[in-house]
Design a protein around this nucleic acid. Structure first.
Lengths: 337, 337
DNA sequence: AGGTACAATGTAACCGTTTACATTGCAGTT
DNA sequence: AACTGCAATGTAAACGGTTACATTGTACCT
């Protein structure tokens, strides 16, 4: 395996010159550079990235920390991130935080073992421990999270508020529903929290009151959708529509409705959030909120790479990027005006 | 950021001893080891992986090369791979080969830049160029592919033959279909080729003749499913059932049937392969073949790590691992006996 | 007591590249 | 001709570990 020493020997120059030629240093004459590159090419030389990263004490690997779950969300995210990192000659390392139990361990080693030049961190919220850990790291990072108000970090998030707000307004104004239930995500999850808030705000602004038992806390899984959907449908005074905080739980509501022999949207309407692939194929097709997740990955990666490149000129304001949402109206609701 | 030199100073031993203590070398006394570890812990020391990999001329990063497409298949695969690598203290690096145009470039750099300690390569087939490149590399690799007969490599693959064979037999024997069409994947794709072969074999063995126009070549996309499904349904003598080589194309056939106003399975039956998430929610739910893809990832990673650890004791026979398939019978076919 | 064997530890080279600093050579200035 | 300044190149240290080899110390044998 050829190295710069060998090239140097063959080219009758020093290793420093070879290094400079390979790195486009303007301090080498065009002729020297050409000659060195020619020899490097003949030897089919590839720089040893490990040695380079080691010498420069940097890394061209970007870590992407994800929770343990398999989800089409993640593959889109990965794709977006990878596309951008690839263009900038970085590598993407997907790191599962293995059930978040180990998130702190994972972070602690990964932030300090020199392997990463930057980090994209997907977390349900930004808690105290996390802040503590992040405050000590030197490597640039970007957070993908729900988008709660944290002035301290660069974060990119789906515009949960607008999405859930638009959906609620649609249910109230376009469809004319008055009895609206919401199955939320886990209360410690920022995305979930914001969707709840938007839902409540939109209801309040339109004089829709929400009975306590119309607010159920789920965990984004289909099973939770089934269980809580069932509970809502068993209420004496059941809702006209269930707004599930994600499509997977909406899907569970479909199951619940089927079990009860109720037809969607006539007996009960259901809407979701995420626009996962399956939603368009449900019977009836699910009305939901979509967001460009691949774009979210791209934006996060772009922001991170920008941060890495401007590492010295620090002190910039943390950036907040919101990924726009879009209402996808299909056939799981109807107008009851 | 503490390093072994600092630990050595604090512990009043040499760096060699520190290194040995940290690496469980039996040549250090238990007391020395304990003392060193205590100091390392106090300093909150983390070894610099880049330096370590550099010094040892190895890497604990495993590359997973995937094509450019987003697919739930990939996220399951990634999960399986990561689970195993994580357990063995390796990292997983997902590398998109960006449309396979660049596969050769990607491979050429990635196999020689020192970044990877092993490679899992997902490819549609193992061609001449690929063989050429792989023959030159020193780093251990495992291929995930269709499973054509290649004696030279360690390959893990879904048991395409058995899966497609079982499905065809099911269509013939259980359902009683005699007019069976097949929409295949791209002819250069090994998975696709094998599925076709199994289909033909099963038909021949049961005296089912396949008219030429009952064999259509698709490309695994939904659009191909629509287009070719349409063509098949437009035949004067149309098939009773379409066996699509994957669920995504089966889904396209659903669309085609809907366009023609045909009902599944009464007017036309449709079956697929893969059992993607959406298939159970189609109307009617799709009969298909499932394989544990996460398991495929795990098996590939296990095999690779075994190879890495036995790198010296080479010369073992290449291993072939087949991931079992299972027929998933739902409601897109019926018995017409 | 002297010698041997081995266990524990230390010394220093090494991995491939970058880069601060040193050196060289040449053009331009006086 | 001597000097200055700068461009091109060279020398060697540095990055943080690992490890071959050297050294030391101690237990055991004769």
């Amino acid at each position: 395996m050829p190295n710069i020493k060998e090239i140097a020997r063959k080219a009758k120059v020093s290793v420093a010159t070879v290094s400079r030629a390979l790195n486009d240093d303007p301090k080498v004459t065009p002729e020297t550079k050409k000659m060195v590159l020619k020899i490097a090419d003949e030897l089919n030389y590839r720089p040893n990235i490990v040695a380079r990263n080691f010498a420069k004490k940097t890394s061209n690997i970007i870590g992407l920390i994800l929770p343990d779950i398999t989800d089409e969300f993640f593959s889109e995210l990965i794709k977006g991130v990878d596309e951008v990192t690839y263009q900038h000659n970085y590598f993407t390392m997907v790191i599962s935080s293995h059930r978040y139990l180990q998130l702190e361990n994972t972070l602690n080693s990964v932030l300090r073992n020199g392997l990463l030049g930057g980090l994209i961190l997907l977390v349900p919220n930004i808690g105290k421990n996390l802040k503590q850990i992040l405050s000590q790291t030197k490597i640039p990072f970007v957070i993908i999270s729900g988008g709660m108000h944290t002035t301290d970090y660069d974060v990119v998030s789906v515009d949960n508020y607008q999405g859930a707000y638009d959906m609620t307004i649609y249910l109230i104004k376009k469809c004319g529903y008055k009895k609206i239930a919401h199955i939320s995500g886990p209360s410690e999850n920022d995305d979930a929290k914001i969707r709840v808030k938007a839902f409540k705000d939109a209801c309040r602004e339109n004089d829709i009151t929400i009975p306590n038992n119309f607010l159920a806390e789920g965990d984004f899984t289909r099973e939770a959708g089934v269980r809580l959907g069932m509970e809502l449908l068993n209420l004496k005074n059941k809702p006209e529509v269930i707004f599930a905080a994600n499509d997977m739980m909406a899907l569970g509501c479909y199951d619940a409705a089927a079990k009860k022999g109720l037809s969607i949207p006539d007996d009960i309407a259901v809407v979701g959030f995420d626009n996962i692939f399956v939603s368009q194929y449900l019977n009836p097709p699910l009305t939901t909120v979509s967001a460009q997740i691949e774009d979210e990955g791209k934006k996060a990666a772009e922001l991170l790479i920008e941060k890495i490149k401007n590492k010295n000129s620090s002190g910039n304001q943390p950036k907040k990027i919101k990924i726009a949402t879009e209402l996808v109206i299909r056939h799981s609701t109807k107008s009851i005006k």
